[in-house]
Amino acid sequence: MTGALEAMLDRRSWSKFTDDAPSHHELLDLIAGAGRVADHSSLKPWRLIELRGDDRRRLGRAIGRAEGDSGVYSKPLRAPLLIAIVASYKKSKVPRWEQEAVASGVAHALSLVLDEAGYAVFWRTGSYTRAKAVAKAHGLGKNEELLGWLYVGGKPARSRALRRKTIDPTRFLSPMPGRHSGGGEKAKGKKSKK
């Protein structure tokens, strides 16, 4: 087994990271691939923000302000690279929820290609994504929302072999309601003509 299915089956969230992280140029190549998600009307309703070094402390201070605290929230310091996922909504016939789904798809695709490139990834979300102080720190526009951050770093050596338990797909796949066994299906609410 190779390719996308193997990447999905091997995917896991990492809570610990080494200081290894992709360079800016390596990240650009990975984003070029992740940006190929299905996108109704090709709106590209997303953007990413790269946080390294002191950027992570500035984010920690913004989260502290959102909490009413003058300290630095330490979670952004857990990984050497954070990638903020921003839904950047466009005026369009394409509904807002669908544009947000595209931005989420880019985030997930990016997490997969980062993992395949050998990096540990964790997607952090939460109430801080909607805090004004955090939005201001990211320079978000009125038509934008922060969906969370991909925490990215090296995979700790002793954790490399761990694998998530595979789901039971039969619990999540069902036929369309009203399907009858054996061929000739009738549309609900319509009588067949004789």
Rank of each mutant, 00 (worst) to 15 (best):
V102K: 01
P169A: 09
W123P: 15
A109R: 02
L150K: 12
W97F: 02
E116R: 06
H138F: 13
R130S: 14
G105K: 01
R160D: 09
W97R: 04
D115Q: 15
V152D: 15
W97E: 11
S127F: 02
E100D: 06
A133E: 15
T129D: 05
W123G: 13
F122E: 15
V113N: 12
Y128A: 12
L173G: 01
A131C: 04
P175S: 14
K136Q: 14
A107C: 05
A103W: 00
Y128G: 08
A120C: 05
T170D: 11
G141T: 06
Q99F: 01
T170G: 03
K132H: 10
G148M: 08
W123E: 12
A135W: 00
G118K: 00
R124S: 14
K136L: 10
L146P: 08
K132Y: 03
K155E: 14
T129V: 07
W123I: 02
L150T: 13
D168C: 00
T170S: 10
P169M: 07
K132N: 10
G141P: 09
A133G: 02
E116W: 00
L140P: 13
R171N: 08
S111N: 07
L112C: 09
E100P: 01
T125R: 07
R164A: 12
D168M: 01
W123Q: 11
S174M: 04
V113L: 11
E144Y: 05
G141V: 07
G153L: 03
L140R: 12
R163C: 06
K165P: 05
R96H: 06
K132S: 13
A131F: 03
A135Q: 14
A133W: 01
Y119A: 02
F172Q: 12
A107M: 00
P95G: 03
W149N: 14
E145M: 10
R124Q: 13
E145Q: 13
Y119Q: 06
R158Q: 14
T166E: 14
E116A: 11
E98A: 02
A161M: 04
G139H: 06
R160E: 13
Q99R: 01
S127T: 11
A137Q: 12
L162W: 04
G154E: 11
L146Y: 08
G139V: 07
R164N: 10
R160M: 10
E98M: 00
E116G: 07
R130Y: 11
A107K: 02
S104Q: 06
N143C: 04
L114V: 10
L173I: 09
K165N: 05
K142Q: 15
G118T: 02
G154C: 09
R164E: 10
P169F: 05
R130H: 12
W149C: 12
S159A: 13
E144W: 03
P95K: 01
E116P: 00
R130C: 11
A157N: 08
S111C: 03
S104G: 13
G141Y: 03
W149I: 09
F122S: 15
G105Q: 05
T166Q: 14
L150H: 14
K142C: 09
N143D: 15
G139Q: 07
I167P: 12
P169I: 07
F122C: 15
S127N: 09
S127A: 12
R158Y: 07
D115G: 15
V102H: 00
N143I: 03
D115F: 08
W123H: 09
H108V: 07
E100C: 03
